[in-house]
């Protein structure tokens, strides 16, 4: 059984932050202590100390070992993140200004919301139509850029049913901050029923669906639905006019 990505990433984070806090306290406390103990008032004449080789070696070697441990933890987590389980279920995702479209292998069904079965390894095949985007599920600690002209990938396994946010993390123009989509983690049976429904039936839904996000803490799961945007953004500024004309040339 592979380690869970969320706990692995958070574990690495916790370890490094803990080390960091200790180091920060050491440096700050020493600094303040010296400033008081050796203030001009308490210690009017300074003493000549040019350095100390043992200390220099110590505070070069110890941090080196420490950061190599950090690197190792990061590397182990990374191996897990990048080594896609062989039997993962593949969903294709395409980013375009400013929505995500998901496509399922068997039926070629397309959707604005990502539905996946709970507890199953899912591989995302990430494409972009126009400019760079980045497929980011904060709650699952996974992210990978969508770059036009290439296919990137990531995998995850959502162990709990619920709604999760999918954000775009790479700046992509005017409505970058509205490029949210929803990940629905549902039981296998429900998923099988859903995916069988006629292909392309789901694509008529408006992109604004993706603005409904899970609300509350986006790292947690199963939160109530909250519409976070007060209103739709309708107007299209100059910056995007060119997109319409160029879009065809980019599509492969």
């Amino acid at each position: 059984m592979r380690p869970n990505i969320i706990s692995q990433t958070d574990g690495t984070m916790l370890f490094i932050i803990a080390c960091s806090i200790i180091l920060l306290l050491l440096v700050t406390v020493a600094m303040i202590y010296f400033c008081i103990k050796y203030s001009r008032k308490n210690h009017p004449v300074a003493e000549n100390i040019h350095g100390n080789t043992t200390l220099e070696v110590t505070w070069t070697v110890l941090p080196t070992i420490l950061v190599m441990v950090m690197f190792f933890y990061g590397y182990m987590g990374f191996k897990n993140l990048r080594d896609i389980p062989a039997d993962a279920y593949t969903v294709k995702v395409t980013g375009q200004m400013w929505k995500w479209t998901f496509e399922y292998p068997e039926t070629k069904k397309k959707s604005d919301t990502l539905y996946v079965p709970v507890g199953k390894d899912i591989k995302m095949e990430i494409h972009a139509n126009d400019v760079n985007h980045s497929f980011f599920i904060p709650a699952l600690r996974v992210k990978e850029d969508a770059v036009p002209g290439r296919t990137n990938y990531l995998w995850f396994n959502a162990e709990k049913e619920g709604r999760y946010d999918i954000a775009c993390a790479e700046y992509c123009g005017m409505n970058h901050s509205y490029m949210y989509a929803v990940l629905m983690v549902i039981p296998q049976q429900k998923f099988d029923d859903w995916v069988k429904v006629t292909p392309a039936a789901d694509t008529t839904k408006k992109a604004t669906d993706s603005l409904k996000t899970t609300g509350k803490d986006s790292l947690k799961t199963s939160a109530p639905v909250v519409d976070t945007t007060k209103k739709e953004v309708k107007q299209v500024p100059d910056a995007t006019k060119k997109e319409e004309t160029k879009k065809d040339s980019v599509k492969k």
């Binding site: 690495t12 490094i16 700050t28 992210k143």
Partner: peptide, 24 residues
């Protein structure tokens, strides 16, 4: 003090798996 915070938080960004979550 401030730079130490900046430098130390760079460690999580240099680490592969945590950076994947934190980048951007």
């Amino acid at each position: 003090f401030v730079f130490s915070i900046g430098g130390l938080t760079g460690l999580v960004l240099g680490t592969l798996n945590t950076d994947i979550h934190l980048t951007d």
